Amino acid sequence: VVLLHVIMPGAGLYLQKRSCDKDIQPGKWDTSVGGHVDYGEAVVDALRREAREELGLRDIEPIALSPYVFESSRERELINPFYVYVDESTAIVPDPEEITEGRFWSAGEIDGSIGKGVFTPNFEQEYQLIKQYIK
């Protein structure tokens, strides 16, 4: 799996609200971009593809974090996390078939909502790795 955290200094971390049609964690707020790596696809190529498909992001320079394994009662995945800084000129265009809505959250808003069923468990774990980069 690839995950991309989209950060805008001064605005916070962009999160997407998962569609209510999703099998796993429907209607919960989640990482900016997430998806699976196709067979034979390079991890960074998968990340760029998912960023284009989900948010319309192009020409990004993602920064890699250390991969890790996420495990729940339903899934076990090798996570390849990245983050990227964007500015006000960056056009974010969510795919309505994948994402119900999206917006930037401040670190304070996220911290105040952790553990309250607002976010996916995956995101809550991932946030601990990424929060130091939110400006």
Rank of each mutant, 00 (worst) to 15 (best):
L4R: 01
H5C: 04
V6P: 00
I7T: 11
M8V: 00
G10R: 06
A11M: 09
Y14A: 05
Y14M: 04
Q16N: 10
Q16F: 01
K17T: 13
R18D: 07
R18G: 08
S19N: 14
D21N: 15
I24N: 05
P26E: 12
P26K: 10
W29V: 10
D30H: 11
D30Q: 11
V33E: 07
V33Q: 02
G35E: 07
V37R: 09
D38V: 13
G40L: 08
A42H: 09
V43F: 07
V43P: 03
D45Y: 03
A46Y: 03
L47S: 02
R48M: 10
E50V: 02
R52M: 05
R52W: 01
E53C: 00
E53K: 03
E54M: 06
E54G: 04
P62F: 01
A64V: 11
L65H: 02
L65Q: 03
S66W: 01
S66A: 10
P67D: 13
P67H: 06
P67G: 01
V69Y: 00
E71G: 01
R74W: 08
E75P: 00
E75Y: 08
I79V: 13
P81C: 06
P81T: 03
F82C: 06
V84N: 03
V84G: 03
V84F: 04
V84I: 13
S89K: 14
I92G: 06
I92S: 10
P96H: 10
E98D: 14
T100F: 14
E101C: 13
G102D: 12
W105H: 08
W105C: 10
S106D: 12
G108E: 15
G112P: 08
S113M: 14
